[in-house]
Design a binder for these strands. Structure first.
Lengths: 200, 200
DNA sequence: CTAACTTTGTGAAGTATTTCACAAGCCACC
DNA sequence: GGTGGCTTGTGAAATACTTCACAAAGTTAG
């Protein structure tokens, strides 16, 4: 989050930013900003704030954003399509090296800049391309099966959009995004008139 | 999360579930399950566990999932398309009452079961339909503008997919999902060989 | 009915996270 | 070069969250 806003400030030509300013941008508190950043090092100058450009570079380094990550998308449905075309991924250094599906009517068809590959080739291609990250956009029922195959092929991280509980071995990182559950969280907030922080 | 798995158990005809069983399903601990549930009431029977069907109903009540929520989707791009067609929303009681865009080449065109409406009508329709929830799938640059208009029209909750920082008044609930940021989290985990919980 | 076994609900203990508050450092101006 | 006004970095305090551990309550079997 800090990287996002620091890059914006950098583009605008701002040289330094105080913890107070970053806190307002990110919807948190100045103390939180200072604690967070101090965890990784001592980047700021007292009386002045944090050097925007330099701090951005430091954080990008820490987050591993200086390199390009190869990503495969599994599932050529609507969500897969949205993700494959999402410019934000490419902009931020994630290169989509393949889209996979097991639907024979989709395999071989063009798909944006790429074509849809057969899921049967997934394991081979992951190893050949050394793609460490997979984005999962398939129905829940198949999710764990596909994950097991990905893990077997040596995948190291998975971003899961299927609304299913999934398990992976400890050396594989997993993040799940469940859109219906996000809406249900809002339903709870509406039902119980929870105050919002006003920021997200 | 509990609702999701309880519904599954209910469908399978299971009458009761222990905190231990729920914990395994949800990737947490039995103590956590008991604490979470006890926050809302005392639902379980000692020696037996929680009554699956009854607990589901209780939780759905608490979460406000017993009613139907009307939802508008703003932005008829790829992400909007994926969301509009996402069956999970409808299945879980969220009814999409309209899709809006400001692109003249899209307005009036069919869009799944609905047609794309002009964003100019958004405020009027929200008031007429009394749709309390909006899903935002538009470019970041326009996000805050559109949010302000939604708030002005009386929207009460917003699920935002634009990678932008957005502010709303305290009476409006806001949740943001930033897909690139999720990937960046995985990048950090890979770069730093963080162990995963193995579950999500 | 009793005894052995389960499982909840919950204070208390243990961790983790956030906020406070202030010394120390840096800049700018005179 | 000294002084005043900012702002960081960070221990300590406060708060939040998770886990422990066990009495109480229910179930099952004989």
């Amino acid at each position: 989050m800090y990287v996002r806003y620091l890059e914006e400030l950098d583009t605008q030509g701002q040289k330094t930013a105080s913890s107070d300013e970053l806190a307002h941008l990110c919807g948190t508190t100045p103390a939180q900003v200072r604690k967070d950043l101090s965890f990784f090092g001592s980047f700021g100058k007292r009386g002045l704030g944090y050097p925007v450009h330099e701090l951005t570079a430091h954080l990008r380094q820490i987050l591993g954003l200086e390199r390009e990550w190869k990503v495969v998308i599994v599932g050529a449905g609507k969500i897969g399509a949205a993700l494959a075309n999402y410019r934000g991924f490419r902009q931020r250094g994630f290169k989509i090296v393949g889209v996979y599906d097991n639907d024979p009517t989709k395999i071989g068809k063009p798909w944006g800049e790429a074509i849809v590959h057969d899921m049967a080739d997934l394991a081979r291609d992951i190893q050949r391309e050394e793609a460490p990250i997979a984005v999962l956009a398939i129905p829940s029922d198949d999710a764990q099966d596909v994950v097991d195959r990905l893990v077997g092929a040596g995948i190291r991280a998975i971003l899961n959009f299927a609304p299913a509980q999934i398990t992976v071995p400890p050396h594989v990182s997993l993040k799940s995004v469940n859109m219906a559950m996000e809406l249900e969280g809002l339903s709870f907030a509406l039902t119980n008139s929870l105050p919002s922080r006003g920021v997200a």
